[in-house]
Each structure stands twice: as structure tokens, then as C-alpha cells.
């Protein structure tokens, strides 16, 4: 047993295996993608010129951005309501609601997309029900379009938004709202003037989280989109594995990577990233 050791040094030694492993097996592969984007098919920024020249890439990026933004907004609105109610529920209900959120967070996204697949098809369960009840004669087209992609993404992202929103709301001193009520504000006024502004940092953090995950989402859009709504992750996969256009594929992966890193770098001045990703 050694008595004298330099504690700082030993603690660094504890971190070292993880850092080394991640450097070699995580960060090196990621940097390989950047490297590919400027070396294949020939060295230079030729691949990145496609961002300006290629209509399909532009349209695909626009689709990705639009779907990500819309689903982020929807997720935040729905998630806010849920987080609000969980925060204000009595303990037993709170636990129940919380369990439901956690369960849906951890169930595989593939399984969840598959479930929507079974529900939304023309011949799916929702249409069977609607037609059985006589609400509609012809099946509603809910699948293979932007609607199904949005439903799938919002469903996948909801728990990711609820958790940081909830942890933000929970840290608000309930006496503040009570004081406002005591001073004569009605419920609505107390909410909008006191409670809501205090939750804005949480809303901001949750939006960033959801937006970033939605941008790079593969499984759900690929399964529910029906081709027309191809988002960037699926496009990258097609370019790499099917079309064998590695230049475009790695370029887009790099764009996605750089965009996310830059966004997070800016955001990190306003939000504690460790808390944000740790809350989920």
C-alpha cells in the first residue's frame, strides 16, 4: 500500500483510459468523416461546392431544417403541458406520470416507429377504427408523408423535452407564484407573468436538445417518410452505401457535424451543456 502519492496525478490516471479509448475509437472515426469530405474524390472543397450548386441537396437540407423546426415547436408545446402538469401533480400521480415518460424515453425508437407504422397505414388500426365507426368511408392518407414523419419524430422526442422542462420547472420556488396570486393576480396572469418567464431557460435548453436530435434522426424518417421526405441522415446513408458517392455523403455528414458543434458552442454560453444532456 503506498502512502504517499500525488492525488491529482492518480485522478488523472483514472480518467486516462476513458479519454484514450474515446480519442482512438470515437473522436478519430469522427474526424475521419471530416477528412473524407475534403479528400474524396479529390483533395479540395469541391464537395462543399455542392451546397451551392445542387438543387436536390438544397431541397433536402431545407426539408430537414423545416421538419426539425416544426417538430421541435410541436414537441415543446406538448412537452411543456406535460411537464407543467407533472410538476404540479401530487406525489403518487407524479411518480406514475414520470414512469410513463421514462418508459417511453427508453423504448427503442425503431419499435416506436414500427408502432406508428402499424397505426397510421391506410389499412392500419386508426383507419380501421375510423371506418368502423363510420367517421370516414375512405381511409385517410396518414402514412408516407410529412404528417407521419412529424408524428414519429414528435413522439420520439417528447420525453427528451419533458425531462429538462420538468427539472427546470421543479426548481422554481412555488412561493413566487403563490405570492403573485396573493397580490391579486389571477391564475392566467400569474402563469404568464411569473411562472412562464422563469421556465424560459428550460424551454430554450429543451428546444436545442430536441432540434439537434431531430436534425440527425435516421430511423423514424426513413421508416415513416416514404421516400419523398428524405432527411439528411437517410440521404447520407443512401449516398454512402447505395449510390457510392462518398464525397457527397461525407460532406453532408461533416456539415451536420459542424452545424451541431457550432450550435452547441454558441448555446454553451447560455446553458450548461452537461446539465442539458445529463437531464435526459
Amino acid at each position: 500500500m503506498q502512502r504517499k502519492y500525488n492525488p491529482q496525478l492518480t485522478y488523472w490516471l483514472l480518467v486516462l483510459p476513458a479519454l484514450l479509448a474515446m480519442a482512438v475509437f470515437y473522436f478519430y472515426p469522427v474526424s475521419r468523416v471530416l477528412w473524407m469530405s475534403v479528400t474524396i474524390p479529390e483533395p479540395g472543397l469541391g464537395n462543399f461546392a455542392q451546397l451551392a450548386n445542387s438543387h436536390s441537396i438544397n431541397r433536402m437540407l431545407w426539408t430537414t431544417l423545416r421538419i426539425s423546426l416544426i417538430s421541435t415547436a410541436l414537441t415543446l408545446i406538448l412537452g411543456y403541458v406535460v411537464a407543467y402538469v407533472i410538476t404540479h401533480a401530487e406525489d403518487r400521480r407524479k411518480r406514475l406520470l414520470f414512469m410513463a415518460v421514462l418508459a417511453s424515453l427508453w423504448i427503442s425508437v425503431l419499435v416506436r416507429a414500427f408502432a406508428w407504422f402499424a397505426l397510421l397505414r391506410s389499412d392500419g388500426l386508426i383507419n380501421q377504427m375510423l371506418m368502423g365507426l363510420g367517421i370516414t368511408d375512405t381511409p385517410l392518407p396518414m402514412m408516407w408523408n410529412e404528417f407521419s414523419v412529424l408524428v414519429g419524430i414528435v413522439h420520439a422526442m417528447l420525453p427528451l423535452a419533458i425531462l429538462p422542462l420538468y427539472s427546470g420547472m421543479q426548481s422554481i420556488d412555488p412561493r413566487l407564484v403563490a405570492a403573485a396570486r396573493g397580490l391579486g393576480a389571477n391564475r392566467r396572469g400569474a402563469f404568464w407573468r411569473i411562472f412562464f418567464p422563469l421556465t424560459l431557460p428550460g424551454v430554450f435548453g429543451a428546444s436545442i436538445l430536441v432540434f439537434i436530435y431531430a436534425l440527425g434522426f435516421y430511423v423514424t424518417p426513413a421508416l415513416l417518410g416514404g421516400g419523398r421526405k428524405m432527411m439528411i441522415a437517410e440521404y447520407i446513408k443512401v449516398q454512402i452505401l447505395e449510390v457510392v458517392n462518398w464525397g457527397a455523403g461525407s460532406m453532408l455528414a461533416s456539415v451536420l457535424l459542424i452545424f451541431i458543434v457550432v450550435t452547441l458552442a454558441i448555446v454553451s454560453r447560455l446553458v450548461d451543456l452537461r446539465k442539458l444532456f445529463g437531464a435526459a
Partner: peptide, 10 residues
């Protein structure tokens, strides 16, 4: 933080 598709490719 980074999308699995990027890491998967690398």
C-alpha cells in the same frame, strides 16, 4: 450530442 449516423460512418 453527435448524430449516430456521423459516428457510424466514421
Amino acid at each position: 450530442m453527435l448524430p449516430p449516423i456521423v459516428y457510424g460512418l466514421g
